[in-house]
């Protein structure tokens, strides 16, 4: 199977289950049977690494390396080096990551939800046209501009997915969400307003001086 087929959501899912390191080894650029599968793979893993780092994972836990199927010695070297590095960092959430266990697993769940989401998958898929032929307006992106677009989705979708996960467990207030998720309450207020505008949540009740919101189940 081509490394281009490795789904970023699967990567986050693996870390959620307690994996300590993951190395994706693809062919050298130019050697891909599917022409650009390995280029896609590297781009996807770069983006996945940005997201995992953003939510608090040591970014060295996810590596993308290249070697050909005939290079046994090179492969052994890559694996030993990666193994060595992971041993240095230690088990996931055990002090080698900015966020410790068990919170790190909740963060990985969020990362999985973001990476399984339509927004980031669609924009990742647009990488080649954006960088080469341009977007719907014919604007060709630099890699830096593309990274900013991806980072924008990473920052906001991480917060939105955390809010949605809480709401799936029951009605919540803006204040309650902010406290549970350590997201500034004024940002939670804006997200809640936006989710309501999109028809994804509605007012559940007002208790004392606190409005509570509940999720509206979506079709499909």
């Amino acid at each position: 199977m081509c490394t281009g087929r490795v789904d970023p959501a699967m990567v986050a899912g693996a870390f959620k289950k307690g994996l300590d390191g993951l190395m994706v080894v693809g062919c050298y650029f130019g050697d891909c049977h599917y022409i650009t599968g390995n280029v896609q793979a590297k781009a996807k893993m770069d983006i996945t690494r940005r997201l995992l780092k953003h939510v608090g994972l040591n970014q060295d836990r996810l590596a993308f390396r290249q070697c050909s199927s005939g290079e046994a010695a090179v492969f052994v070297n890559l694996v030993s080096e990666f193994d060595q590095r992971i041993r240095e960092i230690g088990p996931i959430g055990g002090g080698g990551d900015p966020v410790e266990a068990p919170d790190i697993f909740r963060k990985m769940e969020t990362a999985e939800a973001v990476l399984a989401g339509e927004k980031i998958r669609w924009v990742i898929g647009k990488r080649t046209p954006f960088l080469e032929s341009g977007n719907m307006y014919g604007e060709v992106f630099t890699q830096h501009e593309f990274n900013r677009a991806i980072d924008m989705i990473i920052v906001e979708e991480t917060e939105v997915q955390e809010i949605l996960r809480e709401l799936r467990e029951g009605a919540r207030s803006v204040k309650g969400l902010a406290q549970a998720l350590t997201i500034p309450s004024e940002r939670v207020f804006k997200y809640i307003t936006a989710l309501k505008r999109k028809g994804m949540i509605k007012l559940d009740k007002v208790s004392d001086r606190t409005p509570y919101f509940q999720i509206i189940p979506q079709e499909g």
Binding site: I120, E156, Q218
Partner: peptide
């Protein structure tokens, strides 16, 4: 139907 605003990545 609000399908577009549910998926738009730009706030």
């Amino acid at each position: 139907c609000k399908a577009c605003i549910k998926v738009c990545p730009v706030n």
